[in-house]
Amino acid sequence: EAITDPVLQVGADSTTRNLSWMSENSGGGEVRWAPVNELEGGELPADAAAAETTDSGLATDLKRHFNHASMTDLEPDTDYAYQVGSDEDGFTEVQQFTTGSSGGDDEFLVFGDPQVGAGGGDLGVATGWERTLSTAVATADDPSFLYSLGDQVNSAGNQEQYAQYLAPEATRTIPQATTIGNHDVSSKAYEQHFNRPNVSQDHGGGGIITSGGDYWFIEDGVLFLNINSNSSDMDAHAEFIDEVVAEHGGQARWTVLGFHHSIYSTATHWNDLDVKRLRKAIPPVAARNDIDLVVSGHDHIFNRTFLMDGEGKPVEGSEAGADEAKEDGQTLYLTLTSSSGSKFYDYVPGLDWEGKSVHNDMPAFTRVRVSDEALRATTYEVP
């Protein structure tokens, strides 16, 4: 196959979908798309929309080439067909996706640490990831996107692990957003495989051979902020969050922050130096920007906090029940467990922020339903 690893991704908002793929040859890459009702015998029409790559170059394996492109001006509630490739390499088979409603009730799916390649036996882990993902898609009602909270792979430059992470069909039919984990950071492979919208050039950036970059997007009427928690420059992350919320918070009904290293986990990493640094820096930024929900991974255990305040303290009277009514400046934090089952960490009881923990070493996912009135996070395990 001349074209490999195609990934459908979120764009800056629901009118845009990003794509990335690897190609045998360099240059000439493009994405072509059209509404499904314009397909002719299953093929895209000659006058299908097309867009050239916005970024491309030699892949980290020094053999293939990475390609990024975007489909733009998409209409809501519409079935689209697309393919990526080039004249030289040929094009992928036509794939389909559906755009979401505009401002109605929506939902998205969240996954912790697929970490394909960890825990011994790549095949079992890849199978576990595929099973959780397909179960989640079957459980949800037309999820608008998939949100993976970092450590997609175990070894940052391992292309086989990326191929396994990207193998499920949903990779090509439901947009996804990713977070950069500590296992993803030490290679440019992450930046090459994923075409993220609105990546900051000045906040959370990677290095010459490492990946990084804080970024944001709006989907389901929610402003999603995504920071590279491998980067220890907390002032830069805070500036990014302050600036994006000031500029775009008014366009969204809720604000969600995602990053890899959970600051309120109930497992082994809770006392790590990098986690403690984040735990000091994030709560005041979350409070002053009225971030509603924070989602993280890293500790391979599921928990949720009480409502938390800007000093990192549980809000008095917060019960961690089925309903949480927040005042401005209060935030709920979720830590997601492994979605593949590749590994789990030991439960640490008695931490101040623990509202509820589930620590039975089962892969799980979280379904978040969005309406004007509520963000409802329902978590399921996949035995």
Partner: peptide
């Protein structure tokens, strides 16, 4: 089969 382990609805007070 997925089995529910948590459910929380976050609203504004």
């Amino acid at each position: 089969t997925a089995e529910q382990i948590d459910d929380v609805e976050l609203r504004r007070a």
